[in-house]
């Protein structure tokens, strides 16, 4: 029974500690941050802001899709104040459904053109904080072992020798894969774009659920080529996996990681302070501490030498307004399901 007492004491002790934690919230106010970037980057943002402003940050990290679902479910009685990070589409979706609220930050003047364009396209409801180009990465060792040529273009991936060697996520579940689909449609035109997806389908060994899964599988030698955002591939290479990233020769699309203020936020003033702070150059430069290789939206923020250079990549003119709208998205996804996914391999 000693165990029992010990257990009870611990339980009561922890409950008491938790209770106290609630009672002693800082006097300078608090902000509820929903974060959709990688865990360590979220921690960095939360702790960094807390240290500089004295405002308590309650940070919860979820993927951008999960966060969007949560904000939507909470719409009647919002519990979050500001949503930072994650790919732009769900942010645009939130703006479209009236789940976020417009704000013009004084720091907007220092931002890259694409970041401001993102804000304009959503009526000021969201703003770009980083961006990353789409591409793919391959595992050098596996490629060599299978005597495969090094790919350099999108069209290379259609070659029959890559059959069973390419992986991408399912656009129904992953924003990355939806960006891929929309990129092909914009790059080659809708018909040729879908022809490309059909050809690619023959070589795909698996449509994963999560967007970055293909490159993680490639890193562990479970797959050869993964279609992902280039910065995700760079990250695996920096970790030491034999991954090389490719910016396809035809040109490619990109994502804009975004930030939105949640409509009905209870701590709007603090949320705005966070919003301004997140757009500062020195805040954005700190992304390098957690090896996040996206391109920052502040013009004067530091860019890692390892990061893929947006200037050297042929970027298409990606129409975020059109391809971010839910009607167009539903149409393309349905077409992909009917015409591509249902084909035999």
């Amino acid at each position: 029974m000693k165990f029992a007492k010990l257990l009870m004491t611990t339980a009561i002790g922890t409950v008491a500690v938790l209770g106290f934690g609630i009672g002693t919230a800082a006097a300078k106010g608090k902000v509820n941050l929903y974060c959709s970037a990688q865990e360590d980057w979220c921690q960095l943002m939360a702790k960094g802001f807390e240290k500089e402003s004295g405002i308590t940050v309650n940070m919860t990290r979820r993927s951008s899709g999960e966060t969007f679902a949560k904000i939507k479910a909470e719409a009647k009685n919002p519990k979050g104040d500001v949503w930072w990070g994650g790919t732009g589409d769900p942010h645009l979706q939130a703006a479209e459904e009236g789940l976020s609220t417009p704000y013009a930050s004084p720091n907007q003047a220092n931002l890259q053109g694409w970041a401001v364009a993102q804000s304009d396209s959503a009526g000021g409801n969201t703003i770009g904080i980083y961006s990353g180009a789409l591409g793919y990465g391959y595992n050098e060792d596996v490629l060599k072992k299978n005597n495969l040529p090094v790919p350099a273009c999108w069209k290379d991936l259609l070659k029959p020798e890559y059959k069973g060697h390419v992986q991408m996520a399912n656009p129904n579940s992953s924003g990355t894969a939806y960006t891929t689909l929309a990129t092909m449609v914009q790059l080659f035109g809708e018909d040729a774009g879908f022809e490309f997806m059909k050809g690619l389908h023959k070589n795909i060994n698996q449509y994963t659920k999560s967007g970055s899964a293909p490159i993680k599988a490639a890193a562990r030698g479970e797959n050869t080529i993964g279609i992902v955002f280039i910065h995700d591939a760079v990250k695996q290479a920096v970790k030491g996996f034999p991954i090389k990233s490719v910016a396809p020769c035809e040109g490619t699309g990109y994502e804009i990681g975004s930030m939105s203020l949640i409509k009905g936020a209870r701590n709007l003033d603090e949320a705005k302070k966070f919003y301004d702070w997140a757009l500062q150059a020195d805040t954005q430069s700190r992304a390098l501490e957690v090896s996040a290789f996206q391109v920052p939206s502040n013009k004067s923020a530091e860019v890692s030498p390892k990061a893929p250079k947006l200037e050297s990549i042929k970027l298409i003119k990606y129409d975020f307004v059109k391809y971010g709208s839910s009607a167009e998205r539903k149409r393309l996804l349905k077409k992909w399901d009917d015409e591509v996914k249902s084909l035999p391999k």
Binding site: N170, S173, R329
Partner: peptide, 12 residues
């Protein structure tokens, strides 16, 4: 998994 991604996925 289909249920999960119907809610949080791009199809939303």
């Amino acid at each position: 998994t289909e249920i999960f991604f119907a809610i949080v996925g791009a199809q939303n």
